[in-house]
Design a protein around this nucleic acid. Structure first.
Lengths: 152, 152
DNA sequence: TTGAATCCCTATAAAATCACTAGGATTTAC
DNA sequence: GTAAATCCTAGTGATTTTATAGGGATTCAA
């Protein structure tokens, strides 16, 4: 029941991107330096986020990434689902009406997985990127936060 | 962000156990037959549930398992945590006050993981085993439910 | 026009985790 | 004593995760 590094790194990267975005696009190199994430790996994550329409890329020298929409319009749920696929605790076809599991109607555990799924999605959809950026600014007045080896 | 077979099988097994518990203890063989779960594997799961105090075992011929307490006093959360360890989406030491991550105070993502963790735990702790057994009885009046190959 | 900076795509390797399987040891009812 | 059951510890093949690596393609500045 764990989130992979994709989700963890990706969320940190997008907070960073939102925080450092200004006139010029933010390069992968700069994010990876600040966040201590492998440049090559981060590249892949940004690709996924781009394909999901959360960021835009600007190629060539001086290029990098920018948010595709306002930070207030991007939720943690959008980011995590883009990177982790759906957040369902169980890959239960009964959760998807179109797929039709023959046991679905009689399945008791489906009820449980559905409840967990709903609560996770509701929680992550409530948290917006701008809020996290603001929190981050509050915590860190002037000097940079000491992240150390923390990869979460 | 997936629950492993431990949690999925374990919950089904305990619903089954609660459903079929009567005078005599319920054997692993009978549960594994009804639920289509590998006997040897289920053995391990029952061991974990026993160590967590959710079931009691009776050894020897005619032995098996019984619930250690009323079905109404066992929550889905108890079961899943017994089998999956904690349900935290991220193994973040900042979530545990005693461990003390140096970045904890400045860590923005910790806030997110904490929220997800709380919502999952609240959800699974609200659902009790007796409720699931009752639901199961309702859905299946007389004839057994067709579970097919569904492993969820 | 050239070179540096940057994104883009695919393949592959190492590590970790999962989902069992195997082989016994112990306990109990009959 | 024997069969039926739980108990315990390892081992193992398959899959997934977590990157690394390499080779482009594109853009901009000088």
């Amino acid at each position: 029941m764990k989130l992979s590094t994709k989700g963890r790194y990706g969320l940190r990267a997008l907070i960073d991107l939102a925080q450092y975005s200004g006139e010029t696009p933010v390069s992968i190199t700069s994010i990876s330096d600040r966040q201590n994430i492998s440049e090559r790996y981060l590249e892949q994550l940004m690709g996924m986020l781009k394909r999901s329409g959360l960021v835009k890329s600007i190629r060539g020298a001086g290029g990098g990434y920018i948010l595709a929409k306002e930070a207030a319009e991007i939720s943690v749920g959008d980011i995590l689902r883009a990177l982790e696929g759906n957040l369902e605790p169980v890959n239960c076809s009964g959760l998807h009406p179109e797929e039709g599991c023959e046991a679905a109607d009689n399945c008791v555990t489906k009820y449980v997985w559905q409840k967990i799924n709903d609560s996770i999605n509701q929680t992550v959809d409530e948290i917006r990127l701008d809020h996290l950026v603001e929190e981050s600014r509050k915590k860190c007045t002037g000097n940079l936060p000491i992240q150390g080896n923390c990869k979460n």
